[in-house]
Amino acid sequence: MAYNFLYIDDEQQEKIDGTISGLKCDELNITFSNPDPSWDEQIKILIEGQNEIDGIILDLRLQEEVNQAKGGKANYRGSTLAQELRTLSKEKLLKDLPIILLSATEQIDKSFDSTGIDLFDLRIVKDQVQEKDYPIFQRKLIAIAKAYINAKDLDTDNVPENLKSMLGNTKDLQIDFRLLDVLSQLIIAKHPFHQTSKFILKEIVCKPGVLINERYLAARLGVNIADSPDWEKLINLLDYFRYNGFFHDAWKRWWASELPVWWKKNVSKETDLQSLNAKQRVDILKEIFQLANLVPDIKLPKCSSSNFWVVCQGTSKPIAIIDGFRTAGGLHSYPWVEQHYVSIDAALERTNILAWKGLSPLEKERLEQVQKFYTRERK
């Protein structure tokens, strides 16, 4: 099955043919259109053609270039159009569709706050996409479109079955009851699926907590993925608690609570996983599973421990919680979402700070002490 996305951008098609070609594949078809100069006509076009599309891709600024075929500029923005489409879906005048933002960094940074970003299921920064990134975005677009289509078969009166459909196989797994409660309330309220979709993707799949990604999994097992040819063999052993709910085709995740359970059951009843350093964890895994080609990861220069458990938001390297500074980016989340950390190295150098948005105010004094220590050390 091929999923059909309508891409609306005010630029002439020849200027963005490369982007369209990069995103298209056997399972993903992209149809291009300039925005209609008339707001009412554009809405009419989308309502009348809704059965032919599975999603919409929007540029942020639609009013800068002339629609050559119709001889005028649009008088509205992509964000305005996205808001109207969400409203129409609530009113049952338009089917609920995934909406993707595809725009330049400068446009996004100047024009959006978090409320505006929440209109979109996914944001793609046009000027930062490289050729190697296209397969990643293809999988994400397909996974999002697939979730919206599957959501049509959900029975809103059967909450347990809905949870099973959304979260996949969770039999015999311990799932945080607070997450299940919030998701159940969304189901019972019968909100449009885009609200539930945003919640699952933003608060469950894309934040470490009940689910962890491959970097977090490697950190907790102590393994350096790049240097370990046997990594795939190892994670295949963890397949029974890999997440297979909505969006799993594009976002590889594992149920975090099951990793220590798996360790106790299959690796070592006597040792607690978090109490071991990376080398100790890897040595045990190599011996138990005969995986000679696993290599332990090493700590960052200013860190004190290789008892890794989280991933530094600035460097994407594993760190022990004791070596981490809590970030502002991890504040005000749901209770099952883990605190975000940056390493001492990243905090001092402000590495990739846009990704972690600075430190929690509670860490200010501690950082000052660390800065004084390394200042004295350099003298």
Rank of each mutant, 00 (worst) to 15 (best):
A2N: 12
F5I: 02
Y7E: 01
D9L: 03
E11V: 07
E11G: 02
Q12K: 13
G18L: 10
D26S: 13
T31C: 06
F32H: 03
P35K: 00
D36R: 01
E41A: 11
I45Y: 03
I45N: 09
G49C: 05
G49P: 04
Q50N: 01
G55E: 05
I56D: 00
L58V: 05
L62G: 01
E65Y: 00
N67V: 05
G71M: 03
G71N: 10
G72F: 04
G78F: 00
Q83S: 14
Q83F: 14
R86P: 12
S89L: 07
L93E: 14
I99A: 07
I100N: 01
I100C: 01
L101H: 04
Q107H: 11
K110P: 06
I117F: 11
D118I: 04
D121T: 04
L122W: 01
K126S: 10
Q128P: 03
V129P: 04
E131T: 11
Y134H: 02
K140Y: 01
I142C: 11
I142H: 06
D153M: 09
D153L: 11
L154M: 14
D157C: 12
V159K: 15
P160E: 09
N162Q: 06
S165W: 02
G168V: 00
G168W: 00
N169R: 11
K171R: 12
Q174I: 14
F177H: 13
V182E: 14
V182Y: 00
I187S: 09
I187F: 04
K190C: 10
F193C: 08
T196C: 07
F199D: 03
F199K: 06
C206G: 02
V210Q: 15
L211C: 08
N213K: 04
A219S: 10
R220N: 14
I225E: 01
A226F: 11
D230W: 00
K233F: 03
L238T: 04
Y240L: 05
F241E: 03
R253F: 00
P260S: 13
W263M: 08
N266K: 07
K269Q: 14
T271D: 15
T271E: 15
Q274P: 05
S275A: 15
L276A: 08
K286M: 12
I288G: 03
I288E: 08
L291F: 00
A292D: 15
N293E: 13
V295Q: 06
P296W: 01
D297Q: 02
K299A: 15
P301L: 08
P318D: 05
I322P: 08
R326S: 12
S333W: 08
P335M: 07
V337E: 13
Y341S: 13
E349H: 03
N352P: 11
W356A: 03
K357V: 10
L362H: 10
E363Q: 15
K364I: 15
E365V: 02
V370M: 09
T375E: 05
